[in-house]
């Protein structure tokens, strides 16, 4: 899901930083300072999830947990994902520093969308509705992220428009795994730590 240095054009990099900058600023503004430990914990899980390899038939990929990040943190997903991606770039050489803006936008935007669309349903008392919304949040956020990655590449090089489609299709299996992961995380949190799903926004 990370785009490496050298792929994106200057306008795409600038657009990525604009989206990421605005998102991080808004996320920090909305975030309750009391919840900063919860944000750093979710950010740590996101940071480490990239090291968890998932074998899917002949290919292998790693988890991203974009959906659960959105459901747990809401707008604070932007600063949390930005910081985790920065550390991944510096410590693991995933992505890069110049493309950090585009990578943050690709992953944090679907996370926030998952929160805005499915957040209320996930917090509902109806367990079936909650489970279905959690799966949809995990599944669709990965596909949306793949779509954004393909879009950044297409903007930079129109010849990669076909590649964007193949990236989307290639992410369908891992999206199903991410949906299942979001489902189990949500059900576990609903039983053990229901307050975790109440978001970190200022009240």
């Amino acid at each position: 899901m990370h785009i490496s240095e050298g792929f994106l054009s200057a306008p795409a990099l600038a657009a990525g930083w604009t989206v990421a900058g605005a998102g991080v600023a808004w996320g920090l503004k909305k975030m309750d300072a009391e919840e900063v430990v919860k944000v750093s914990m979710a950010s740590s899980v996101f940071f480490l999830a990239s090291l968890v390899n998932v074998k899917l038939g002949p290919s292998a990929t790693h988890l991203s947990l974009i959906g659960p990040m959105g459901l747990l943190l809401g707008w604070a997903s932007f600063p949390a994902i930005f910081t985790a991606l920065l550390l991944q770039a510096v410590l693991f050489q995933f992505g890069g520093l110049l493309v950090l803006g585009a990578n943050t936008a690709s992953m944090a935007t679907p996370a926030v969308c998952a929160y805005l669309i499915f957040g209320r349903a996930v917090r509902s008392q109806n367990l079936n509705l909650s489970a279905a919304a959690a799966f949809a949040a995990g599944f669709l956020s990965v596909l949306a992220s793949a779509l954004l990655v393909g879009s950044w590449l297409s903007i930079s090089d129109p010849d990669m428009a076909l590649t964007a489609k193949s990236i989307f299709v290639a992410h369908v299996p891992i999206a199903a795994v991410e949906g299942a992961a979001a489902l189990f995380i949500t059900l576990f949190l609903k039983r053990a730590f229901p307050d975790m799903l109440m978001g970190v926004d200022r009240r």
Binding site: V36, V37, V39, S40, M41, S43, S44, F47, L48, L51, T83, A84, L87, Q88, L91, F92
Partner: peptide, 13 residues
């Protein structure tokens, strides 16, 4: 490196 990353995130908090 993984421990360093997690440590950095909690130090920020």
């Amino acid at each position: 490196r993984a421990l360093l990353g997690v440590s950095a995130l909690f130090n920020i908090a």
